[in-house]
Amino acid sequence: MSLEDLEKRTVYGPDNEEINVDPLQDYYCAATPEAKTEAQKGTAPIIEKFANWARSESLWVLAYGTGCGAIEMRPLMTPKYDAYRFGVQWRPTPRQSNLFIISGYLSIKTLKIAIRAYEQMPSPKYVMGVGSCTINGGMYFDSYNTINRLDHYMPVDVYVAGCMPRPESLLTGFDLLKKLIKEGKGTGADKYAKEFEWYKGNQKKIIKNWDMPDFNW
């Protein structure tokens, strides 16, 4: 999809009737994200706690491998590591997943897709940065085309260090993330909403041709 596809336009039907198309209205929500306040959460703390427990025990991972680390996710499904027993499952679409694993280096082009996918996930959503590339650039620290720090572009809940970390490390990462969520600290989506301008500024600084709407949900 390019910018032209998102413009408002008038198309003509077979009987020459006018049809006004506004793709931004049709496919995207134009409102900026809002952080959930305590009042909006509304429900009793015990229900929130129960919901948090359910969220932590049912982590649906977006099956999108950004870098070399994607190969480490496959062993997690195999008999040896079997992440399914911890409630970790893979979903093919961002709409149905709540954990985004950034698996390794992010080039600018991939970052663009990663941001779209992240914004399309329903909150509360969590991000796990895997590998040193997401932490400080790793071996691509001086590359002209890969980002250095992931947490400047999207809020990261858990980092898993290593190049690449073994599947066991990822399992530990899942454990840590579960603990965070159960404590109610998995509020990356709220942080993203609060500091939206800053994140967008950082993203737009490196993504020069921004051919998508600012808000992708």
Binding site: C29, A54, R55, G87, Q120, P122
Partner: peptide, 14 residues
């Protein structure tokens, strides 16, 4: 069951 509870507890976006 957990998945069901979780899905109901997620925000509806669009």
């Amino acid at each position: 069951y957990i998945d069901l509870v979780k899905n109901y507890s997620l925000e509806t976006l669009v």
